[in-house]
Simulated assay, not measured.
Amino acid sequence: MIYGFMKATIGTTLRVVFRPEAEGLEYVPSEGPAILASNHLSFSDSFFLPVLIDRPVTFIAKQEYFTGTGVKGRLTAAFFKGVGQLPVDRSGGRAAAEAAVRSGIRVLERGGLFGIYPEGTRSPDGRLYRGKPGGLARIALATGAPVLPVAMIDTEKIQPPGKVVPRLMRPRVRIGKPMDFSRYLGMEQDRFILRAVTDEVMYEIMKLSGQEYVDKYAAAAKAEAAEKESDSSSPS
Results as ranks from 00 to 15, higher is better:
75 L>N: 07
98 E>S: 08
6 M>E: 07
176 G>R: 10
112 G>H: 03
236 S>C: 07
208 L>M: 06
18 F>W: 07
100 A>W: 02
180 D>T: 06
66 F>H: 08
122 R>P: 03
85 Q>R: 04
170 R>G: 03
41 L>Q: 10
203 Y>M: 14
2 I>G: 05
79 F>A: 09
90 R>S: 11
200 E>C: 09
201 V>T: 04
137 A>C: 13
185 L>N: 07
97 A>T: 04
219 A>L: 14
20 P>V: 01
195 R>F: 01
94 R>I: 03
88 V>L: 09
167 R>D: 07
198 T>K: 07
140 A>I: 03
177 K>H: 10
172 R>V: 10
152 M>V: 13
29 P>Y: 00
215 D>V: 10
81 K>P: 10
37 A>P: 04
216 K>M: 15
211 Q>V: 02
97 A>Y: 08
7 K>I: 15
61 A>H: 09
87 P>F: 11
78 A>P: 10
126 G>T: 05
124 P>E: 13
95 A>C: 05
51 V>I: 15
158 I>N: 02
219 A>Q: 12
129 Y>T: 14
120 G>V: 00
25 L>W: 02
93 G>R: 12
149 P>N: 10
236 S>I: 13
161 P>L: 00
72 K>S: 11
75 L>M: 15
158 I>H: 00
226 A>E: 15
3 Y>E: 07
34 A>W: 05
217 Y>H: 14
201 V>N: 05
119 E>D: 03
51 V>M: 15
58 T>G: 09
199 D>Y: 00
85 Q>M: 14
229 E>H: 13
